[in-house]
Amino acid sequence: MRLATVSHADRTTAAVLIDDVWRALPATDLSAFLAAQGVARAAGLAGAALDGAVPVLPLPAPAKVICCGLNYADHIRETGRELPSFPTLFAKYADTLTGPADDVVLPPGLQVDWEAELAVVVGATLRHADPDTARAGIAGYTVANDISVRDWQYRTLQWFQGKAWDGSCPVGPVVVTPDEIDPAAGLDVVCRVNGEEVQRDSTRTLVFDSAQLLAYISTFTVLRPGDLVLTGTPGGVGTAREPQRFLADGDVVETAIAGIGALRNTVRLKG
């Protein structure tokens, strides 16, 4: 099943895709729908067809956005680190998120880098969950790009200030439920800049899979329906290249995950 927040007739609504037609769900967006109804009821609550609906940011109001860094073995190696015993976590705000086709607008003069990622959407309240409980509590999966401001990220040992710029993290276009895709079986994660492939790996090689991450996080903070967990990026980021490479004004970043879909965002660096 595919779920989204769509724009239709100058408003947004949660929607479910049935027979290639978006049908309205009883909420203004998918964040509100998951909090109130849960993913299991989506098909039964489908309403009118939404001709011309366009997917936008699927989860505009997650209470928590938690990200895992250093979770693909090749990316860990390119940073010169050892494989971790525990996930490396940091948080974002909902203000960081933007839509699947939106421009990423940042000030000029920054070292802006790409990070294609699988994102996990929480579908149940999880607290002290084991991996099996966490897996059962996954609403679905979507695509994200944790676009990072490297010169700010590495000002200190804490990454937060390079990871939480408003409107810098595209997400979408849809949320696909676990009955349709299984990241543990391997989904290709690909990033292209101006058509050039710069990242490619399989979710099969994640050090900590989706269920492990949700279980670990739920040990110290409760996760609720609509929360978002980003699972980390593969190797190939610009800051690890020789010479380093960063995004320029007008660059087009495409982020795709097999079985889910693709983001296409233009970088705008302006004052």
Results as ranks from 00 to 15, higher is better:
residue 231 T to N: 02
residue 150 R to K: 15
residue 127 R to H: 15
residue 203 T to A: 01
residue 139 A to P: 11
residue 231 T to D: 00
residue 158 Q to F: 15
residue 227 D to M: 04
residue 214 L to K: 02
residue 119 A to D: 00
residue 199 Q to R: 10
residue 115 E to L: 02
residue 162 G to I: 13
residue 231 T to S: 14
residue 217 I to Q: 06
residue 160 F to I: 15
residue 235 G to D: 12
residue 101 A to D: 12
residue 209 D to T: 01
residue 156 T to Y: 07
residue 163 K to D: 05
residue 100 P to F: 00
residue 131 P to M: 14
residue 222 V to Y: 04
residue 209 D to C: 10
residue 136 A to D: 09
residue 192 R to K: 14
residue 235 G to F: 00
residue 229 V to F: 08
residue 218 S to R: 01
residue 134 A to I: 13
residue 191 C to E: 05
residue 189 V to N: 02
residue 170 P to G: 03
residue 234 P to T: 12
residue 207 V to M: 00
residue 198 V to N: 05
residue 219 T to E: 15
residue 169 C to F: 06
residue 204 R to I: 00
residue 227 D to W: 09
residue 205 T to L: 15
residue 113 D to S: 13
residue 133 T to H: 02
residue 217 I to F: 08
residue 172 G to W: 11
residue 122 V to P: 02
residue 179 D to Y: 05
residue 198 V to Y: 01
residue 131 P to I: 10
residue 105 V to I: 14
residue 196 E to H: 09
residue 143 V to H: 02
residue 118 L to W: 05
residue 198 V to E: 03
residue 129 A to V: 08
residue 139 A to C: 04
residue 182 D to E: 09
residue 196 E to D: 10
residue 137 G to C: 03
residue 149 V to R: 05
residue 141 Y to C: 08
residue 133 T to A: 07
residue 207 V to Q: 02
residue 232 G to M: 07
residue 134 A to S: 10
residue 139 A to M: 13
residue 214 L to P: 01
residue 142 T to Q: 12
residue 220 F to G: 13
residue 155 R to I: 08
residue 192 R to M: 11
residue 179 D to W: 11
residue 144 A to S: 14
residue 130 D to F: 03
residue 218 S to A: 02
residue 141 Y to Q: 00
residue 174 V to E: 14
residue 230 L to M: 15
residue 115 E to C: 09
residue 167 G to S: 14
residue 115 E to W: 05
residue 161 Q to V: 13
residue 113 D to A: 13
residue 230 L to E: 05
residue 193 V to G: 01
residue 179 D to R: 07
residue 169 C to P: 04
residue 201 D to G: 12
residue 220 F to A: 15
residue 179 D to L: 03
residue 186 G to M: 11
residue 175 V to M: 14
residue 180 E to A: 13
residue 229 V to H: 03
residue 157 L to P: 12
residue 117 E to V: 02
residue 180 E to K: 09
residue 146 D to A: 12
residue 171 V to N: 06
residue 181 I to E: 06
residue 175 V to D: 13
residue 126 L to R: 06
residue 225 P to R: 10
residue 117 E to P: 03
